[in-house]
Structures are given as C-alpha cells and as structure tokens.
Design a protein around this nucleic acid. Sequence first.
RNA 1: GGGGGGUUUCCCGAGCGGUCAAAGGGGCCAGACUGUAAAUCUGGUGGCUUAGCCUUCGAAGGUUCGAAUCCUUCACCCCCCA
Length: 426
Amino acid sequence: MSDIFADLQWRGLIHQTTDDKHLPQFLKGGGRTIYAGFDPTSDSLHVGGLMPLMYLRRLQKAGHRVIALVGGATGMIGDPSGKSEERKLLDEQALQRNVEGISRQMRRFLDFEGPNPALLLNNFDWMREFTYLSFLRDVGKHFPVNVMMAKDSVRSRLERDDVGISYTEFSYMLLQAYDFVHLHQQHGCEVQVGGSDQWGNITAGIDLARRMNGVQLYGITCPLLLTSTGQKMGKTEQGAVWLSAEKTSAYLFYQYWMNVADEDAGRCLRFLTELPHAEIDALDRSRAEAPQRRDSQRRLADELTAMVHGEEGLATAQRATEIFFGGEIGAMNDEQLAEIFADVPSKALPRQRLEGEGLGILDAFCEAGLAGSKGEARRTLQQGGAYVNNRRREGEDTRLTVADLASETVMVLRSGRKKYALLRFQ
RNA sequence: GGGGGGUUUCCCGAGCGGUCAAAGGGGCCAGACUGUAAAUCUGGUGGCUUAGCCUUCGAAGGUUCGAAUCCUUCACCCCCCA
C-alpha cells in the first residue's frame, strides 16, 4: 500500500492538519473513514468541486472509506467563510434538485458500488429532525461565543460595517461542527478534509466532538484552487466552468484546461490528476524547456475531460479542438457537427435559399449573425476574415449553394480566427 | 433669483456656415506575427440596390442655395454670483 499522506504532501495538497505527527501514520494502510462537504448551491458542481472530489478519490483508492456529504441543511443557511455578503437561502425543492444533480456527477469520481463503497449523505436528513431547543441544549451549549467571534470567517464580517452577518450565518459553524460529530457517531468518521477556508469549521467540529463525546477527530485542509494571480480557478468571462455538459460543454471544459497559464499548470496537474510523480516531473521539464508545446495543458485537459465527461466526451472535445483550430471540415454528418459546435449559435433558413443562383456570401454572414450589416460583412470579407467550412472565401459576389454544405443541412461560417456560426438549411 | 459654459458617431474628444459620415485617442473588428498566451505591427470601424443615395452631431422649429456649425424655444448637465 502506497503512502497516501506522502503522496498528498508531494502534490502540495496538505495545507494544514490538526495533527502533523500522528496523521501520516493514522492514514497508512487505509480503513479510516473520512469526509468532505459539498455545497449544493447549484445542480452542478463547478471546477472548484474537483479539489475535494479528487481528494476523496485518492483516499478511497488508498483504502479508506469516504463520505461525500452534501450540505442540504447547511446549504439552506450558507457558509460565511470567504463570502463577503449574506447569502440567499435556497428552498427545499431547489435543494433537492441540486443534490440529485451533484450526486450524479460524483459517481464519476467515487466508487459507490465496490467492496469499499463511498457514502453519499445529506445532512438535511439528520438536521431536519432537530428541534431548536434540543440543538441549543446539545450543540450550542458547547460553543463559547467568544471563540466563535474569533474565527476568521466571522471576524472578517464583523469588522465591516457595510455588510454585517446575520445570526443565521453566524450559526453556520455549529451546523457543520455537528455534522462531523454525527458522522463520527453514525459512521465512525474520524477525519474531515476541506479547503483552507474550512479550517475554522473543521476545528469547531473537532472541539465539539471532544466536548460531547470525548473523542479525538482530525482535520486536513488543502490549498484553495487559485490561479497565480490569486483568482479562483474555474472562472471565465462567460462565468463559471461547470462539470455538467449542459452548463459547460465538453469542448469548453477541455479548452479551459488547455488555456491554463504555464505558472498554474504544474499545480493543477498535482492537485487534480492522478498522474504518477515521474510523469508530472517530466511535464514540468517540458514546460520549462518547450512551453510552446503545452504538453502540460494538453495532458491536464485530457485527464480532466476524460474524468468528467468520459472517454466519449474527451473524443468529442478533441475532435472539436482540431476543427476549431484550423482543420478543414469535410465528410461530416449533422449529428457530428451539432456535437462539435454545441456552443456555437446557429440559425435555420429555408433550403430554397441555396437553390438557383444560391445565397450571397454577404447575406449569409448577416443571417448567421457574424456581421451586423452587409457593410461589415463586406469589410470582413475584403480583409480575408470570411470562412465557409473553415475555408477562406473571397469575392463579394460569391454565391453559396448546396455544394457548400458541410453536412446534410449545415453550413459552418467563421469570421476571423475563431468566431463561428452555423446555418441550418431545412 | 442673476450670469456663464456645455450636450458630437460605442466611449472620450476635436470641429464653430460649404472641401464633414465628421480630426485624434480608446474600444471593437479583420490581417500578420505567435504557444489556442502576452506584446507588437498593418488595415478597418453609420446604412444601402455603393462612381451614387439615405440617416447621424440633445429635441423641435427657423434663417440660408447650403447648418454639427447661425437664430428661437424646450430638456438635461456643469460652474460662478446672490
């Protein structure tokens, strides 16, 4: 059995632990029960969720029993950690839908079936039964308010006079702390892992368990997944990068990793892939010597896309990449094109437009929305930026006919380097 | 209440009776270069049935052969004096 703690350490995934001396030994050989929490604010996880998922996956592979805890109850309250504003509360129904979506995604990372199945739990299941009085008596009793006030997540909000913090969010810590206690009681869970911003919540749980039950639990935090410029990873101008294909296509997901900055690539490879150390070292060298090859980014994109979208999703993303970056489009059918150009706007036109003398290329670009006016289309064309099926076309009076279709009904137009639009002729 | 200045094309900003679709910059678009990066360079940047025509310079009227440019009224903004 490999040394899981050493591996985590090598990958830079140990930010802080509650017991540096004991934990490496404690985790050796497997058999421990470990949990991480997931926030159900949406029906899909985004890139940030990859960290805890891969963490649990590594631990499960190392022979530990892992619990993915979906915070149905805590999600209704909102964790103030790292948030600058009071958060909106979710209703029960939305929450349920989100929990279902998220758990579907987890199945790609964690094994819920085999001899050592992961557990998926929702803290709403035990929190809903709690009465206010019993919660105050059993849990609240053990929390000195002065200690709570000292926690970073709370203090940062108290020090600002423009936002403040509600009693509800202030109490969040108690709920998460109790989760840990509950999981220990019911499932023998002894370790909680989370991002470095979770330290306060994790230690609160450890304290609570000691006070309520006199047991010693452990916590491990990992670094947050940040870019070299200090931004959260997974954010683009178009918004978050999601794990669900409906929200972020396999192609865009793939491209996100393909475009990771050189400075961030090494960390991502360590944090998010299971590549062996030797291979990661080799990629580091390749990145230093021949950054233009972008071996690291390609490997990262391959690994993660396969993980999240499966081999099929990866194949689609790769095929789309080939085409989006130059490849001529030939011998395709509608279905393949639809898959590749899933994120590209399209417009349907009657097929008659292609018949007779055909559709003027300027009109085609206007119809497709690639040009706001014929004048603009003309300019693009004159400057050599007009492509049909990835082939540069020239001449204002070019007419497009059935012969210019890329597949049965679709024509792929492009303006400039990579602005695409489809015309569907039905 | 009195006096002065302003409102220009996506943004900033020049224009102060014809040569104004309106300088310059930013942004944006295209091209070259490149690592699907950054920077840089080149060109373009109201519409159309494009040697021409139409619409645009806060709004509406007016003067004039001709107005973004002059006059009147209105709206909004800024400054100064009381």
